[in-house]
Simulated scan of single mutants.
Amino acid sequence: MRLRTPHRPDVSPVEPVKQGAAGERGRDTRPKRSAPVTRRERPKGDLSRFAVFAAPGLLAYLALVLVPIGMTVGYSLTNKNPFNPPTRWVGLDNLTSLVSDDEFLKALQNTVVITVIVTVVTNAGGLAIALLLDRRGWLYNVLRSVFFVPVVLSGVVVSVIWQAILVDDGLLNSMLGRLGVGDPPGWLSDPSLALYTVSWVMAWQGLGFCVVIYLAGLQGIPQELHEAAAIDGCGPLVRFRHVTWPMLAPALTINTVMSLIGGFKAYDQVQVLTNGGPGPGTTSTLAFQVIQTAFTGNHVGYACAMAVAMLALVAAVSVIALGLLQKREVSS
């Protein structure tokens, strides 16, 4: 007896989509990608929102920075003296007179010395302290805060504290006298020491900033690099030379530029500690000379010329230092 198998209808294959008379293909059912929004297609409200948020900052920058700079440049081209009118146009006479001004040149020399000392001491000391504090624990967190405290204090407060310590009958000389030093040095009264004393106070105050920046750079170095160098047999000094120091290039750039700017605009410490002395112009800086010329001598036009020269000098030094240090970042 035979079993009959049920008859299955032939299943014809799916016919391909035929092209129409005009040669058009069938409709593509795949989702189409949205075209990227070009700059011209952005909503018009973006510009208005940007203007609303940026206007307060731009107005403040214009009123507090750009306008005073413009006024200073304008006054530097005159002989403005509020107690001796009228004001006359003198052109570049004020700027050219600075080249032969002994007081200005002495202030420039003192400013360069302070800037070099502050930059070297803060970077070297900040890096050394950061390496010591690059550990975990509550004690190291406390020490980081202690080193950063002078940064948040004003220069006047720091100078008053150090003045009480460094005057001839102050705390430091009293301690030296008890230790048997018969003639303690005059830290602020000796013309050969006063400039270095002011530089030390400024470096001490700016040390904490460099410590924080270097600590941030150290904590951003991948630990795998140190481990790989240690596996290769590199000692601590070699690892610092070839791993740590190149990775700290951005931190070095920030600290160096900020220290240079801070050194060139030194005023508070000089005013409080020495008032430009002891002696004529022993510790006078560019900023101190500008203030004295404008508000004590009332020669506003000449003081503005000093300020313009100071601005150009700081800008040039900062741009050169930034360019050189950024090249080191790329090469590192």
Rank of each mutant, 00 (worst) to 15 (best):
M310K: 00
T29P: 09
V11P: 00
A203L: 01
T253Y: 03
V167D: 08
C234F: 15
D169M: 00
V198Q: 03
I261E: 05
R239P: 08
Q269L: 03
G23K: 00
I69S: 11
W200I: 12
I213S: 08
P185S: 04
N298A: 10
Y61D: 04
L133V: 11
D101A: 07
L131Q: 11
Q289I: 00
S76W: 05
S174T: 15
K18N: 08
K265L: 00
K80N: 12
S199H: 07
Q109F: 12
A51P: 02
V201R: 04
F209Y: 13
Q326P: 02
L77Q: 09
P86I: 02
R144F: 13
N141R: 13
D93N: 12
G182F: 14
R40A: 15
E24G: 12
D268Q: 07
D169A: 15
I165H: 08
A316E: 02
L59M: 07
F148A: 10
G262N: 09
G170Q: 07
D190E: 06
K32G: 15
E24R: 06
A124V: 14
P31N: 04
S284K: 05
V142W: 10
I231L: 08
V149L: 11
A312W: 13
D232H: 12
E103P: 07
L286W: 02
E224L: 02
R135E: 04
V238R: 08
V118W: 08
S100F: 09
I161Y: 13
D190N: 15
L225Y: 15
F264Q: 03
V317R: 00
P16W: 01
K265T: 14
S174F: 15
V308L: 01
D168W: 06
K327G: 10
P280S: 11
L252P: 00
G26W: 08
K44M: 02
R178K: 04
L313K: 01
L133H: 10
V112D: 01
T197E: 00
L225R: 01
L47E: 08
Q269I: 05
R328M: 06
G233T: 10
R328D: 03
M175Q: 10
V113R: 02
L58S: 05
T282K: 06
A229L: 03
T256G: 14
V157Y: 05
G263Q: 05
V160G: 06
D28N: 12
V201M: 03
A55N: 02
